[in-house]
């Protein structure tokens, strides 16, 4: 059976979640691998949640927020960008491929861009293969 990655998506309520809704409303089609969790702001996504997802077996974590300058909370997404830059460095040091955690800006009118992000990220992770962390934790639970 082909590898179907499990990706957890953290989307901000105001832009990205609305953008993902728009993709649905417009009946655009995308890969079924991203499971979305609604957050109020990308600036409220703790690295803890991302690490938790990877530890729990996610093959990828997608973070989406408003375009820079469009944040509903003024500068939440600037906080996100700084945090993610740092987190990616740490992931590298832990031996986790940086592509597994991706940050994209998706606006409320960007349904087609959201679909594109989901499809590209799914393809990226398929190419990387299952996360080693995931395989390990899955084995342990068995």
């Amino acid at each position: 059976m082909s590898f179907e990655p499990k990706i957890v998506g953290f989307l901000c309520n105001w832009c990205s979640y609305a953008g993902a809704d728009l993709a649905g409303i417009s009946r655009l089609k995308c890969a079924p691998n991203v499971h979305i969790i609604r957050m109020m702001c990308s600036g409220g996504i703790s690295p803890f949640f991302i690490l938790k997802a990877l530890e729990a077996g996610a093959d990828g974590v997608l973070i989406c927020g408003c375009n820079l300058g469009d944040c509903h909370y003024r500068e939440g997404n600037y906080k996100t960008i700084r945090r993610m830059t740092l987190l990616k460095k740490v992931l590298g040091q832990l031996g986790i491929e940086q592509e597994r955690v991706q940050l994209h800006w998706v606006c409320a009118s960007c349904g087609d861009e959201f679909v594109d992000v989901v499809n590209r990220m799914t393809a990226d992770i398929k190419e990387l293969g299952p996360s080693r962390l995931g395989v390990k934790s899955r084995d342990l639970t068995r």
Partner: peptide, 27 residues
């Protein structure tokens, strides 16, 4: 927005209805 909860080093700060347990539970 939850920015304060993210930076809190002791976990004292949380946002009602978007708590650590709730999000962690979903993940």
């Amino acid at each position: 927005c939850g920015a304060c909860a993210v930076v809190c080093p002791t976990g004292a700060m949380s946002v009602r209805h978007s708590t650590r347990e709730q999000i962690k539970g979903m993940v």
